[in-house]
Amino acid sequence: MTFTVTLQPSARQFDVARDEPILNAAIREGIGLPYGCKDGACGSCKSRLLEGRVIHGAHQEKALSAAEEAAGLILTCFATPQTDCVVEARSVPGAGQFAVLKMPGRILALTRPSADVAVMRVQLPANQNFQFHAGQYIEFILRDGARRSYSMANAPHNLGTPAAIELHIRHLPGGKFTDQVFSTMKEKDIVRMEGPFGTFFLREEAHQPIVLLASGTGFAPIKALIERLQALDSPRAAVLYWGCRSRADLYMDDWVQAQLAAMPLLRYVPVLSEPRPEDHWTGRTGFVHQAVMADLPDLSGHQVYACGAPVMVASAQRDFVERCGLPESEFFADSFTSEADKQTP
């Protein structure tokens, strides 16, 4: 049995199976709805149910509270329709532009720029035309069917020869995938992938100055956005705030410094939360989003692209909107929810 979902205000319609999340059907049909994790943890897909009835799967309270659900809000990633539905959701131009493909990949290189971060380059199959927006992510499909998501850290024009995507993977001890990456995985191994996914990419039609906000390996998709800005020869001013614990965690600081020489409109502010004595750090310290607020107390004319730890993304969105005048519609985020995050009530 299928039901018809109508989106407002776009009036687009698509069919959804009774046991299928609305978002899955939208992705399949190439319809651009906002979303992030697809796992009921980040809240990026939050929309309003205007008509009809849905059933929600188990999801994070922080993504959709009981009060919000009672007020008619839904998570399209976990809401399955039980009747025809009308859903109010903003469209994301370009989100459904490229086909989602399942494909094999071969590991070309696996390096360790820091103790707990691996940079992996995965060769794309030559017989599939894999296309994506800078900032989107792919999912690794593990042998037991489990999936793990990682943002692509290079822009589509910068895949190299042979064509390969770059991924930044932080080791989470006990992690089903990351333990393999940091122990048994090696060059020439074959992995299974599916993508592209996500609505975190540059809104190229905009003209506002840009704040790029990253914590830890949230730098990966931000790196792709910087490459895209450079390829466009963009006239927009951009500033990168990269928050890490210690100096060693700024694992691609040299790469950023090199871009500054090539991109006169790009500025860079690294921020350490727990600098070590051996770091001899004289730069900014504290919470990275608070460094943005100190430098840019008025964000009303900016766009913000934030990526990394869920607590950083949530704090930045709240404080930038409430205290710095950032229009809520100009905050774009990719919250890196771990499996532990998804399983915490």
Rank of each mutant, 00 (worst) to 15 (best):
48 R>N: 05
133 H>W: 09
96 G>S: 09
77 C>E: 07
131 Q>A: 08
157 H>T: 08
110 L>W: 12
51 E>S: 12
60 Q>F: 01
141 I>Y: 08
78 F>K: 15
56 H>L: 05
125 P>M: 14
119 V>Q: 08
24 N>T: 13
42 C>M: 09
68 E>S: 13
79 A>T: 07
87 V>N: 04
60 Q>N: 04
81 P>C: 13
140 F>Y: 15
38 K>L: 06
154 N>M: 03
138 I>W: 14
96 G>E: 03
156 P>S: 03
84 D>R: 13
36 G>V: 00
56 H>A: 02
70 A>D: 08
147 R>I: 03
82 Q>M: 02
98 F>N: 09
44 S>R: 15
144 D>S: 02
102 K>A: 15
155 A>F: 03
90 R>T: 01
142 L>N: 12
52 G>V: 01
78 F>A: 15
120 M>R: 09
101 L>F: 14
115 A>C: 04
76 T>D: 01
69 E>F: 04
37 C>Y: 02
72 G>S: 07
148 R>W: 05
26 A>G: 08
41 A>G: 15
105 G>E: 08
114 S>Q: 14
44 S>F: 05
40 G>H: 09
28 R>K: 14
25 A>C: 01
107 I>L: 15
53 R>P: 06
85 C>N: 07
113 P>V: 10
63 A>W: 01
27 I>D: 01
122 V>P: 10
33 L>E: 02
147 R>Q: 14
63 A>L: 06
55 I>G: 01
31 I>M: 05
32 G>H: 02
58 A>Y: 02
73 L>Q: 09
94 G>W: 07
139 E>P: 10
64 L>Q: 15
52 G>P: 13
147 R>W: 06
83 T>S: 14
90 R>P: 03
98 F>K: 04
136 Q>N: 12
155 A>P: 00
138 I>F: 15
121 R>N: 10
117 V>Y: 10
102 K>L: 10
52 G>D: 08
37 C>M: 03
20 E>A: 08
76 T>N: 04
139 E>Q: 14
116 D>G: 12
98 F>W: 11
145 G>I: 06
71 A>M: 03
108 L>N: 09
36 G>K: 02
56 H>P: 07
31 I>E: 00
31 I>V: 07
75 L>M: 02
51 E>H: 13
137 Y>A: 06
62 K>R: 12
42 C>S: 10
74 I>E: 01
98 F>Q: 02
139 E>F: 01
143 R>W: 02
44 S>D: 11
127 N>S: 00
35 Y>L: 12
38 K>G: 00
131 Q>S: 07
117 V>H: 13
156 P>R: 00
68 E>W: 05
68 E>N: 11
137 Y>N: 12
121 R>E: 12
106 R>Q: 14
23 L>A: 08
31 I>N: 03
99 A>C: 05
138 I>A: 15
148 R>L: 04
